[in-house]
Amino acid sequence: MSSYSIVVKDLYKRYGDIEALRGVSFTVRRGEIFGLLGPNGAGKTTTIHILTTIIRPTSGYAEVAGFDVVKYPDEVRKRIGVVFQDITLDLNLTVYENLWLHGKIYGIPGNELRRRIDEVLELIELKEWRDKLVKYLSGGMKRRVEIARALLHKPEILFLDEPTLGLDPNSRVKIWNYVRMLRKEHNITILLTTHYMEEAEQLCDRIAIIDRGKIVAEGSPDELKSIIGREIIYVKFVGTPPVPLLKTLEHVREVKLIEGGKLEIVVDNAPKALPEIIEVFHKSNVQIEEVSYKRPTLNDVFVYLTGRELREEESNFNEHIRMIMRKRYLT
């Protein structure tokens, strides 16, 4: 067996005039949690839809669990579990009935199916809800039921398209825990998409940053951050800061006085630069009150690579609108 669960090469997808994907390539290793991080409209969902065989790419190649998604969709389908971005449960069936229906469609025999339903309900902590109609469940609970359903047929690879979109922090942490647990105890490969950088950072072994239909970087969170090659140290002090002296230090790139009596020092290697900086202050007899240090975030990486923000505020706003629309639609 190949050590890659997913191989994507130069994927293009056109919707009329819109080019949703413009040459997407990445690989996901067996057993890892891989994140596709990108803003709204980046092409995350389109990528998931192609990899899960429900739409065809305009061109390019994608392989999931060793099978070409265009040539052998059924082989791929048997081996994957999918949680789509929007709810795909039957709202007029109960939790149990949704799971039962899924099991039947996937050909799981009766006794085995009942056992597995109990198992997944246990996992997502919704046992008491099994006979409730899905439409009466909260958004977070529906998500958990979808995860349970995607696991029922024991997939090799799990796809999660924005699994925590619009959920409260509590539900979000729950889902993160399930994801970690699945990887650890069941060795499932997980591909998830998100536009929350903290989610990508907390959860993923490796991340591909996607923007406007292209992968702009791929690597572990630390690797991605080191792309920027700059970190920031803040020093609060009493007296006159030794700015010229600081500028001569090997790892220091910029020094700037900012409000609150603080110095902002941009360095390329904080662990090495910090002792030198402290020594300079000491020698100049300037007392240090406080030192803080800011690692670059994935958002900084995104800004560095694309010149734009991941823009959480705007996406939260869109999400809000989307939730309202969805609610309206459902009632």
Partner: peptide
């Protein structure tokens, strides 16, 4: 299609004719 359940069916390995 509008409530999303169609996706659950389309992504399943079961032959669509039976569905």
């Amino acid at each position: 299609r509008q409530f999303g359940f169609l996706k659950e069916v389309l992504v399943a390995p079961a032959p669509r004719t039976f569905i």
